[in-house]
Design a protein around this nucleic acid. Sequence first.
RNA 1: GGCCCCAUCGUCUAGCGGUCCAGGACACCGCCCUCUCAAGGCGGAGAUCGGGGGUUCGAAUCCCCCUGGGGCUACCA
Length: 507
Amino acid sequence: MLNFSAMPATGKTAQNGPARVRFAPSPTGELHIGGVRTALFNYLLAKNTGGQFILRLEDTDRNRLVEGSIDSIYDSLRWLGLDWDEGPDIGGPYGPYVQSENVSTGAYAAAAEKLITGEFAYECDCTPERLERVRERQKATKQAPGYDGHCRTRSRDELAESRSAGNDIVVRLKVPRTKTATFEDAVRGRVSIKYQDISDFVILKSDGFPTYHLAHIVDDDAMKITHVLRGEEWLPSVPRHLLIYEGLGIERPVYAHLPVILAEDKSKLSKRHGAVSALEFRDEGFLPDALFNFLALLGWSPGHDKEVMDRDEIASLFTLDRVKEAPAIFDRTKLEWMNGQYIRNLSLDSLTDAALPFLEKGLPAHVARPVDRDRVRPLLAMTQERMKYLTEAPEAIELFFEDSISPAPEEIIQKKMDAASTAAALESSLQILRGFEPFEVEPLEARFRELATQLDLKVGALFGSIRVATTGRRIAPPLFDTLVALGREKTITRMEAAIESLKAVAG
RNA sequence: GGCCCCAUCGUCUAGCGGUCCAGGACACCGCCCUCUCAAGGCGGAGAUCGGGGGUUCGAAUCCCCCUGGGGCUACCA
């Protein structure tokens, strides 16, 4: 067993004082929902402890950079309200917050040099071709793949010579392959991993950029990070990191490896499962608060039965010892339910603000732009408790903007009625509508209930035929709210058209 | 293959040795409310706590093995 003297006592309960945490994505594309969840847990720990949430860009792989992904990361985090206290755009006392910018400061090279001097690391000029040959040989003899330590014992002079001859040089860490690393993880407790199958890995690439292993440690130390919350995929790498901390003589942070998020078929969540990036959820009409709440509950629970909680409530309850260690399946149906909860809890003004962009995009072209906020607000009120996504807003209210809706006669005719009787009922309704005062919900409803009795019709049948005649739909908000919103004039026009079409059918 | 992590209703989870023949939520089914659809209310079905051994007076809870799932095994993060 290797006992790391620098290892702090960090059992499951260790969580004292303000935590400085960071979310450190690579700008290699859109922010995946798994990354968002990692960011969220970091954010929550910072909020819970009164600490800082830091954003850092890990762009040390120059080949995988994707144009525009930095802005997309910013947009995702801002949309969700995961505001950072220090970061590339706003700076902070421990910059730079972009790793590529830290290369020119020599920070990583200096760390690598220190590790070489301390004999924790060494330089290597093995070519990709040689590494490939080694791998093939290992495969053929069924050995674990990995670097064979060829350059471990070569002198620095030798490597310096190789470098001036124009060869590519990397720096590798010496891994003590007979030992075992034992450490505490805040969500998993004590973990032991053998060094046996970890080969001497690269910490400084030939282009002078560090790999993740070196870079994140140098930066975390510089930024005084106290807790590292990251995906479970990093757990097997912890022994490597422990080695670097030891070699550099710095104290390691508290580790918390979060469970991964899986798709419904238990495979890794990917594009083919639908929306996976934060921005896609935004575009599909989810509310950031709903996603925030839902994601917080994926892998963490508050310890009580209440599930719909606001941000402050979640943050005040969040602790690492309540984080689950098993992977969770992303249950989109439950997210939809939660989004509905949040939509219903919105004030009408907030709902209008949130829906406006979707209306701009989704309402028919003939509706004047920009969309009239005051016109649209009362319409949204009628549909609010029926919505699961904001994307449903345009379709829900567009019927109020159409000039003619022309529903099929058979749609208008209700149970136990025919074209003639329906036409007659609508005629009577039309008479009432023409002169009725006041044209308001309650009085209208009372009068039409009376009419149903007079005509010996079921209320549902009469209302139903009027509903289809005036909205073109069998399903719509409550009838008289709809008619009032439509206005007397439009209501009458639609009724007349419906009666005409029924008469044509009745012959 | 090797190493590591994990395992409670279909799904998210509560449970941290007795109060659990297992609680809540989503989804599902039924009833109520009701002008349609929702929302809401009430109720139901749904988990031999993956399997097998232990430890213990007593285990979903502790230990071991098996099985299953996931992760890692790059000059990617």
